[in-house]
Amino acid sequence: MPSFTNRLFPLPPAQQAAAESWFERGEGTPRKPRAASSVLLLRDSREGAEVFLRYRRGESPLGKIAFPGGSLEETDGDQVPWFGPTPSEWAKALGMDDHQQAMRHVVAAIRELFEETGILLAGPDASTLLESNRGPEWMEAREGIASGEKSFPALLARRGLGLRTDLLRPLSHWKTADFALRRFDTYYFAAVQPLGQESSLLQGRGIWGKWCIAVHEFERRQTTALGDEVGQPDTVGLTLEQLTVPSVQLMLEKLAKAKGCIAYLAHRRPNTVHQPELVKDDDGAYLLRVSGNDAAEGAGQRGR
């Protein structure tokens, strides 16, 4: 298998100015990345594995089109009922020594998934899962948590629910390139859509989000079809590579090549930290080159 070292990715238009400034200054001191968690929400279909993608406003380091996710919050460290692997087991799975930080990443992953899609990986015991997430009370809870007016741990306690951490799978660990003005240190997870629960956008905040067939997005990745479908001024006319970050592209490719969700989740992945590197192309264009090996996600070179 080829190395990620020689794989080049177009630099998203929104990051061009930061890249130019980085080179003009002779590089510099990278900004400290914020800890984050992101989740690939999956389900099977007749045409292949599907994943939930959503549009992000602003200049998110996770890309214009990305998986549900976001920064860790202070309350992610609060004690919550917990089913599945222990925080120490999660720390080992994530390749970190800090059990408390591992717990925060897992809680953040489940919280962000609930905020952005309504899917809640929680139940009253270790073998039961919330059967339905429908109803205005659940949307109200999501809005309150997203705005910071309500607490996710308090919601779980009030409903008598514990986190089903056994329904999450660790995928990979990525850091935003050094030159970026906003950086994330992101752990990616995966979860399969539970029976009885439906995904939906957060009321008042969600602009676009849908289930996408991975193989279809991979096949049309060099077209502007997805960006045109989203229909926002900063997505129209852009390809998948211009709308997403390398981590999202590579995971979509791997998912497209997998024979269903079970096969994708069963793939063993080492604890490798991946971080794109900013380089200059021969014609002066700014491109991202992924450093490290290709053992975690993705395969093959593209383009150049």
Rank of each mutant, 00 (worst) to 15 (best):
S3G: 12
F4H: 15
L11E: 01
F23G: 11
G26P: 00
G26C: 04
P30S: 00
P30E: 04
R31E: 14
S37Q: 03
L42S: 02
R43H: 00
R43D: 09
D44A: 02
R46V: 14
R54H: 12
R56Q: 13
S60M: 07
P68G: 10
G69Y: 06
G70Y: 01
D76T: 07
D76E: 00
G77Y: 09
V80E: 04
V80G: 05
P81N: 09
W82I: 05
T86W: 04
S88W: 03
W90H: 02
W90P: 01
K92M: 07
A93S: 12
Q100F: 12
Q100Y: 12
Q101K: 14
M103G: 13
H105M: 01
V106N: 01
R111G: 00
R111E: 09
E112R: 07
L113T: 12
L113W: 07
E116I: 02
T117S: 15
G118S: 03
A122M: 04
D125L: 11
L129R: 06
E140Y: 11
A141G: 10
R142D: 02
E143T: 13
S147T: 12
S147L: 12
E149D: 14
E149H: 12
E149Y: 06
P153Y: 05
A157C: 04
R159D: 05
G160K: 08
T165S: 11
L168I: 02
R169Y: 15
P170I: 05
H173F: 03
T176D: 09
A177E: 04
A177T: 00
R183N: 06
F184I: 07
Y187N: 11
Y188T: 11
Y188F: 15
V192D: 09
Q193I: 14
Q197R: 09
E198M: 13
Q203N: 06
R205V: 08
R205L: 11
W208D: 00
G209Q: 06
C212S: 11
I213F: 09
A214H: 02
F218D: 14
R220N: 15
L226N: 01
L226K: 00
D228V: 00
D228Y: 06
V230Y: 00
D234P: 02
G237T: 07
G237F: 00
T244H: 02
T244D: 07
V245S: 02
S247A: 15
S247C: 13
V248Q: 01
L250E: 12
L252Y: 03
K254H: 12
A263I: 10
A266G: 01
A266Q: 14
R269T: 07
K280E: 15
K280L: 14
K280P: 05
A285D: 15
Y286A: 04
Y286V: 02
R289D: 06
S291P: 09
E297T: 13
Q301V: 06
Q301R: 08
R302F: 10
R304S: 13
